[in-house]
Structure formats: C-alpha cells, structure tokens
Design a binder for these strands. Structure first.
Lengths: 157, 157
DNA sequence: GATATTTATCATATCTTGGTGATGTAAGCA
DNA sequence: TGCTTACATCACCAAGATATGATAAATATC
C-alpha cells in the first residue's frame, strides 16, 4: 500500500474535518491553512473525496466540506484509495504473478507485512483516529505476530 | 517506506543476480529479459546500485553485474534506498513534525506498523530471500511484529 | 592493434504527480 | 436583481519517474 503525497494530504484533510466536529462544514481555506497545503490543489483533492462519498460539499455562504457519512463508517482505505500509487503492492518485487501458488523469492517474508498493511487501512476508521491519545490502549500490549495477522485475512464476508 | 517502481525493479534485479550464483557476472540483457523490463533503464538503475556498492560492474566480454558484497551483507534498504519516494513515511498524514512528543492523530496507531516496515527493510538481507520456500523458518522471529493487527479489530461496525 | 562484447551515458520523449492563477458557477441574502 | 461567498474547473506549468535510441568508453580475445 504505497501512498502518494496527495493521499496523505487527503487523509489529513478528512481527519481535520472530522476533528472539526460534525456540525457545520469547514471551508477549504481553513483546511488549507491548518494543513499548510496549497488551496486549489486541496480543493481538487477534496472534490474528488466528495465525488466518492467520503466528503460532502456545500457551496455558497456558510458552505464548505463536511464528512459524507459518520466517521466510524469511513475506512482509511476509502480516503486513500483514489490517490494510491499504481505500483504492484502485494509483490515486493513488483511481479504481476505473485501469490502463494507462484511466489517470488520475497513472497513468504513480505506477504505477512503486506497483509498487515492492508488490514490497517481497511479496518481502521477515521473515528478510530479521533480518540484522544491519552485514551489509547497501552502500546506495550503483547505483540501479535505477523503470521497470525495473515491468518486473520481470511475474513469471511 | 514507500517504494517506487524503480525500487522494486532494483530489488528484483539484485535478487536475480544473487540467485544466479556468486561466480560470473550477469549481463544486463539477461537480467532485463528475466525481469521483462527495458534494458537501458535497467542499466541505469543497476549502475546506480554499482555506485553505492550493492553491485559491481565488469565491462567488456564476459562482463556484467555481480553482487558488490556477500548477499548476507546486503540489507533490502541498501538496495531500495536510492529509489524510495521522498514523501514523509514516518507520519501517515505527512506531517513534518510528528513523533511521540507531538503526535498526529494517527501516530499511535501507525507508528507500530511503520516501525515494522523499517525493521523489515533494514534487517532482511538479500541472502534471506534466497532460502528455498520449503526451508523457511515458521516466521516466529521478532522481525515482523505488527502490533496493529490486534488493535485494528476495534472497528465498530 | 583490430574487433567484438559489454557497460556508461547522452539527448530526448512521455506520463504522472504536484501546483498555480484565473475564471466559472451554485447558493445565500438583502 | 445584484452582491457576496464559497466550491468547481480550466489552462497551464514544473519536476520527477519511466522510458528509448544512439553513441561513447572500457576490456577480453584473437
């Protein structure tokens, strides 16, 4: 899952809007100021997010952008997907045909991490990122091994 | 650690040469054929790897490229580093100032995975990738700890 | 030394990403 | 209606990634 800079900006913008609260929309200028990113380019990026339903845009006075649906229903992959790089991500060596059946030399070692990445983006929601740092579960919790992560990928449905 | 397509090609080429055995060098044309990648561009990429010591080039008849040092001494990051994207990788949102002291909203959840990625590239060597799949250890090394796997299940559907 | 082989490199082209300024357009409001 | 506020979009640009073909330079071999 290789992100472009635009993908990171998109994530940042969505988080920023989510932090702003669900009430009234946030203007592009304000988001651009908070993110220190060019206004017009951000406008294009956010417009794309609006077209995919992640954001909703309101024109005119008191307009701006707000979340298109509740933060708990926006997975990070939903935000990031239109802006991810086009390189093959599942194979570390970029091979088109690489899987358990026809693995590249790196497959066995890489696939666990690749799965962890995909799970992170598909299962973490914007709401998850809004939790105050103090409320986070302690990070020294027993580390789950990557192998078990790969097993989790067999999520039925 | 976001890879470009060239970085993946570089990794693939180094692995290809390593698989070829330590003996005689491998010609660019042969590597390009194996990787299905354009010859001249690959030549430039491999030349860059030679300049950084990962590969060694021999000109003239019976020339080509071979490893610049033993495969066990070439970490994946050594191969990939000159070709990685310049985006901020440690912060998921691309913030310049993001760390334990001044964390972005995603920091606590992302940093464990980011660390796993960095460890993977810094501690896995080319020699590790040459082991036949059947001979792989069951991946219980502390190398790929993905703490987020346990955490991401907190998605509230 | 001549020649064949092979990497090194130059000039150039294309595509994608990231960015800018100007202008178009929908909506609120007096 | 007309002004203002905002997003939407157009035209264009710059940089970097990804090539391509031609040519230069090094070297083994005869």
């Amino acid at each position: 899952m290789w992100l472009t800079g635009t993908a990171q900006t998109a994530l940042h913008a969505v988080v920023c809007i989510a932090q702003h609260g669900g009430g009234e929309p946030m203007r592009v200028d304000d988001v651009a100021a908070r993110l220190a990113t060019p206004r017009n380019y951000l406008s294009k990026t956010m417009h794309q997010l609006a077209r995919s339903g992640v954001l909703a845009s309101i024109r005119g006075p008191h307009g701006g952008f707000k979340l298109g649906r509740p933060a708990a229903e926006i997975a990070l992959v939903d935000v990031v997907d239109p802006f991810t790089a086009r390189v093959a991500r599942r194979c570390l060596l970029g091979r088109a045909t690489c899987g358990d059946a026809d693995p590249c030399p790196a497959h066995r070692r890489w696939s666990a991490l690749a799965t962890s990445l995909e799970l992170f983006f598909s299962r973490t929601t914007v709401a998850d990122l809004l939790v105050a740092p103090e409320l986070f579960p302690p990070l020294e919790s027993p580390l789950t091994q990557a192998t078990e992560c790969a097993d989790v990928s067999t999520r039925s449905g």
